[in-house]
Nucleic acid binder design. Structure first.
Lengths: 170, 170
DNA sequence: CAGGACATGTAAACCGTTACATGATTAA
DNA sequence: TTAATCATGTAACGGTTTACATGTCCTG
């Protein structure tokens, strides 16, 4: 995978919601808190901190001559806000954005879930087409595994869509 | 992501199930057939073919002085078989293996789905623990997005488990 | 004070993508 | 025949992981 750059935005999001962070603290976040949904190792985090400070997204403050604590700047906040509002290329990114939304009334919640809904509806349509194209007769006899995972993929999409609609209906 | 090496095995699987392949053919497979579940670009495929031929997993045969068609060797078959039987590190890999199973009676089907089931049950347990730990009272008021995606993750696992059990019950 | 854990930092290797290059076939 | 397309091939780049390196603090 081309692995589009999300690390800096996740860092901004964490600092924004959890307050200023040292390398140790944010590494802990990545392992234990947000770790369910995103992971980064310390060897990415430390250089990324410096890059972001150089770019003016973070301020750095020495705590004890070696421990640096970073805080988000106005520019960083702006960058975060833009990222939150731009369209996500995949589900994982959408979920990360949701993770950083604290208020149930935030209109971004609806926006992101609506985007997801639209994409999953399209995906479901496509998968169903594939299924009728490939397995409308008895072909599954001879490609059972393919039939299985296609069926599973369809059910997953249906389940996800159902969930999104239920949430959006609230 | 570290992206564990799956390309060569997918190539073996395709040749095994679809017969000998040229670069063009297998590129088409990656885009149009198996593309739902795995993707590779031609710039990976051509060098990989050569590596695999050098390693004795494939034989190469010139069709017209420039088009090379590759077929699987006995050794390649063995490698494929081993890969199919070893434990998968993630769901995507499990699905790929299922894709290559043509016969509904193949015992590997059950084996792989049982592995998946076990992992997803563990994952579900873990997610539920997280939820009670983080959101047993009214904390969701203040971290609604986190609450949402955790809830969604749980439902996804439940749905997947339900599906696996239904399949295994047949 | 010696050893180990730990926080921080850097380097190397791997995989995959995008972009570029080449030669042959096809088509205007 | 020239131009476009296409199959094949190579190079450069980005991102992530693993491994290695350094200094500090804690502990026996």
């Amino acid at each position: 995978m081309p692995a589009k750059r999300t690390l800096p935005y996740v860092i901004l999001g964490i600092i924004h919601t959890q307050g200023p962070q040292t390398g140790k603290q944010i590494t802990h976040e990545f392992v234990h808190e947000i770790g369910e949904f995103y992971h980064a190792s310390h060897s990415q985090i430390y250089p990324e901190f410096k890059r972001m400070a150089k770019d003016g997204w973070l301020t750095s403050e020495y705590l004890d001559g070696k421990t640096i604590r970073y805080d988000i700047t106005e520019e960083g906040l702006e960058v975060l806000k833009q990222w939150m509002e731009e369209e996500s290329d995949d589900d994982a990114t959408s979920s990360l954005k949701l993770y950083f939304i604290r208020d149930q009334k935030d209109p971004l919640l609806q926006k992101i879930m609506n985007e997801q809904l639209e994409k999953h509806v399209k995906k479901l349509d496509h998968l169903k087409e594939r299924k009728t194209l490939l397995f409308s007769h008895d072909e599954k006899q001879d490609h059972y595994g393919h039939y299985l995972i296609l069926t599973r993929a369809i059910e997953r999409e249906e389940n996800h869509i159902k969930w999104l609609k239920a949430q959006l209906g609230n």
